[in-house]
């Protein structure tokens, strides 16, 4: 059964071009069946009606698939539960009277835009370097021309589940985007359709990742714990293999 709880929130507030700071708010009468973002909605309504500016946070589908939401909740990306986005985290996991610290995803490559909203466009720029198969509309052969081993298709799907939320970067002690990049590289390395551009893809995507100011992977696996979709570090091993192979071949 749901019940009502009260919480103290310490929330990061930051305006464009200014230094940020924590501010403390009371969130009273929160239903334990509400989601974390619905709790923020309630707080925002109160802030609005008391003449204050509501907390800016990014969200859209609230079903855990669009990848918009995400903050550090008590120091953890998306809060406390494995394989759960912030929008799918419910208030029943918090205790009455608890203090919750909420701050934006932190990484040099993710500058804060406002409050809890950060700029994750660097991830798109990595994809632009080759996170796709270059097929023009109309080029494709009949879909069943090339059979793909079921296990490979499944493994590719495991990698393809990434929602691009950036939690892996925020959780990484080095602010690295290896898991994100690896998932995309490996999806296309596993599928035969991805092979023609394989070497170029990994080289370009890694080069872009480095250029954008992401850190270096030190295999500490915080990313895999943080990933709300359970993307595994086997993708990182695969990315390393792809990188080695691509460079040994010295392909252009």
């Amino acid at each position: 059964m749901s019940k009502k709880i009260s919480l103290t929130l310490k929330v990061w507030r930051q305006n464009r071009g200014e230094e940020g700071r924590f501010e403390t708010y009371q969130a009273g009468n929160i239903d334990t069946d509400a989601s974390f973002l619905e709790m923020l909605d309630v707080v925002n309504d109160e802030l609005t009606l008391s003449g204050k500016e509501p907390i800016a946070f990014e969200h859209d589908c609230r079903e855990g698939i669009c990848g918009c939401c995400g903050s550090l909740v008590n120091g953890k990306t998306h809060g406390s539960h494995e394989r759960t986005t912030l929008c799918q985290l419910h208030m029943r996991h918090f205790k009455d009277g608890e203090m919750i610290v909420i701050e934006p995803f932190r990484a040099t490559a993710f500058p804060v835009i406002k409050d809890l909203i950060v700029d994750r466009s660097a991830l798109d720029r990595i994809i632009a370097e080759g996170g796709y198969i270059s097929v023009k509309t109309g080029n494709a052969p009949e879909a069943s021309t090339t059979p793909v081993k079921k296990a490979l298709a499944e493994a590719a799907m495991d990698a393809a589940e990434c929602i691009g939320c950036g939690a892996c970067v925020a959780a990484c002690p080095n602010g690295a985007a290896m898991l994100f990049t690896a998932a995309k590289v490996n999806q296309y390395a596993l599928l035969p359709q991805g092979h023609p551009e394989r070497a170029q893809r990994v080289k370009n995507m890694v080069a872009k990742m480095d250029e954008l100011g992401f850190g270096n992977c030190s295999n500490e696996y915080e990313c895999a714990v943080a990933c709300p979709k359970g993307i595994d570090v086997k993708n990182i091993a695969a990315l390393n293999r792809e990188f080695i192979k691509a460079n040994l071949k010295c392909e252009k």
Partner: peptide, 23 residues
């Protein structure tokens, strides 16, 4: 509809497959 499937498979979308490797 059929062209879409052809195109999406070529794009590397990991559609579910049978054991024989077909869609």
């Amino acid at each position: 509809s059929n062209l879409i499937i052809d195109h999406c498979v070529a794009q590397g979308i990991p559609f579910a497959r049978e054991y024989g490797g077909y869609l």
